[in-house]
Amino acid sequence: MTTDLLHIVCPHCHTTNRVEKASLSAAPDCGKCHQPLFNGHPAALDEVAFEKHIARSQVPVLVDFWAPWCGPCRMMAPAFEQAAKELEPAMRLAKVNTEEAQQLGARLNIRSIPTLALFVDGREVARQPGAMGAADIVRWARSHLA
Rank of each mutant, 00 (worst) to 15 (best):
Ser112Trp: 00
Pro68Ser: 13
Ala135Glu: 15
Arg107Cys: 00
Asp136Arg: 08
Ile113Asp: 03
Ala131Gly: 15
Ser112Cys: 00
Asp136Leu: 06
Ala84Thr: 05
Gly71Arg: 12
Leu108Val: 04
Ala106Trp: 01
Gln102Arg: 15
Ala134His: 07
Trp66Leu: 10
Met75Ile: 12
Gln103Ser: 10
Gln82Cys: 00
Gly122Met: 05
Asp64Ser: 07
Asp46Asn: 15
Trp66Pro: 06
Met75Phe: 12
Arg111Gly: 02
Ser57Tyr: 06
Gln82Asp: 13
Gly71Ser: 12
Met76Phe: 07
Arg107Tyr: 02
Ala135Val: 11
Ala44Pro: 02
Arg123Trp: 04
Ala134Met: 10
Leu104Ala: 13
Glu124Cys: 13
Ala126Pro: 09
Pro114Cys: 03
Ile110Gln: 02
Gln58Val: 08
Val48Ser: 14
Arg92Glu: 13
Met132Leu: 15
Leu87Val: 07
Ala90Asn: 13
Phe119Asp: 00
Val63Gln: 04
Pro72Gly: 02
His53Leu: 13
Ala77Thr: 00
Ile54Leu: 03
Ala83Arg: 05
Glu100His: 11
Pro72Gln: 03
Val125Trp: 07
Glu100Trp: 05
Leu104Arg: 09
Asp121Leu: 06
Arg111Lys: 10
Phe65Arg: 12
Glu86Tyr: 07
Ser112Tyr: 02
Gly122Ser: 10
Ile137Pro: 00
Thr98Leu: 09
Val48Gly: 05
Phe50Thr: 01
Glu88Asp: 12
Asn97Leu: 10
Lys95Asn: 12
Asn109Glu: 15
Val63His: 04
Leu93Cys: 08
Gln103Trp: 03
Glu100Asp: 14
Ala134Pro: 05
Met132Phe: 04
Gln102Met: 10
Ala55Ile: 00
Val63Ile: 15
Asp46Arg: 11
Glu88Lys: 09
Pro129Thr: 09
Gly71Asp: 09
Met75Ser: 14
Arg127Gln: 10
Ala135Pro: 02
Ala90Lys: 05
Pro129Glu: 08
Ile110Gly: 02
Gln58Asp: 14
Leu62Arg: 07
Ile54Phe: 02
Pro114Tyr: 02
Gly130Phe: 08
Phe65Gln: 08
Gly71Glu: 14
Leu108Ser: 03
Val96Cys: 11
Leu116Glu: 03
Ile113Tyr: 08
Glu88Ala: 13
Ala44Ser: 13
Glu86Pro: 03
